[in-house]
Write a protein that binds this DNA or RNA. Structure first.
Lengths: 148, 148
DNA sequence: CCATATTGCTTGCATATGGAAATATATCGG
DNA sequence: CCGATATATTTCCATATGCAAGCAATATGG
């Protein structure tokens, strides 16, 4: 009915909805954080000096700057991130991963890896998973600071 | 750093965010509807007698029943869908695609196919797109009424 | 046949989010 | 150096969404 390109796009939307549902529950229950909060911490973890401006975080998370402001506030209260100014540019307010945040994201990553493996447990071979990862990587390529 | 399963999941989340951004703009501008509304109409289009209960729509769209109620209301005002009761079960309130709705979804599908093709324009061969669609299909399999 | 449980739908409430506006700072062109 | 422009962040407002509660209708078990 639809051509392969449309099919791929439509299925991607569906697969995403299913995965978000699945991961939100598990990660939230285990670590007390929503999937999106864990992703924020993961981006910080892989950034130089484990810090990013709110604007850069917004780009990496595909959300608006205001959303980053509001996501960072509770994480700051929980001491998972800190706030630091740039000595050269007083406009910038970096979100910095704390030691506690690093610990949490390390654990959350392990949980995520277990859950991800579970997604592919049945009916998937290793090369197929690798192929999927490679092809999806092409869709996100060109952006700075991709996860995975 | 991460294993292939995690990599695939993380990239899927990222790719989805990028695609939603891209498609929301285009579809919205051309047809006045959000991507999610178009998906609702597409599910109706492919359903028997072009109608679905709100519960079934919710499952297909991966949203809550209340969201379906609220999504259907404006579409009904626009005469894109109608509301019909089931003669056997008075609890059911079907969302039925109207003639105008069918026209719109036909046009929107064409737009979507053009935009989808554009996503893969560079650096993708036909077999690669087909492989991606097939692998993603496996992630959504088992659900009734998948699109694409 | 009736009481109870289940199902489909809607509404109230709390939360999440994007966009516009406001503010502060930095950069650029003369 | 100065005014105009651009950038980073926050706040206000409108919208979207899930969940729990409520209601109506159906199914179930005695």
């Amino acid at each position: 009915m639809t051509n392969p390109s449309s099919s791929a796009v439509l299925r991607l939307l569906g697969a995403n909805a299913r995965l978000e549902e699945r991961f939100s529950g598990g990660l939230g229950a285990l670590h007390g954080l929503a999937l999106k909060e864990v992703l924020l911490l993961m981006h910080l973890e892989q950034a130089p000096r484990q810090r990013l401006s709110r604007i850069d975080l917004a780009k990496r998370l595909y959300v608006s700057p205001s959303t980053v402001t509001r996501m960072a506030a509770p994480l700051e209260k929980l001491k998972m991130v800190g706030r630091e100014a740039d000595p050269r540019d007083a406009r910038l307010a970096y979100v910095v991963l704390t030691k506690a945040g690093l610990e949490l994201v390390t654990n959350a990553r392990a949980t995520l890896e277990v859950m991800a493996a579970d997604v592919f447990r049945d009916r998937w071979t290793k090369p197929e998973i690798a192929t999927l990862a490679e092809l999806l990587g092409r869709l996100t390529a060109g952006q700075p600071g991709e996860l995975g």
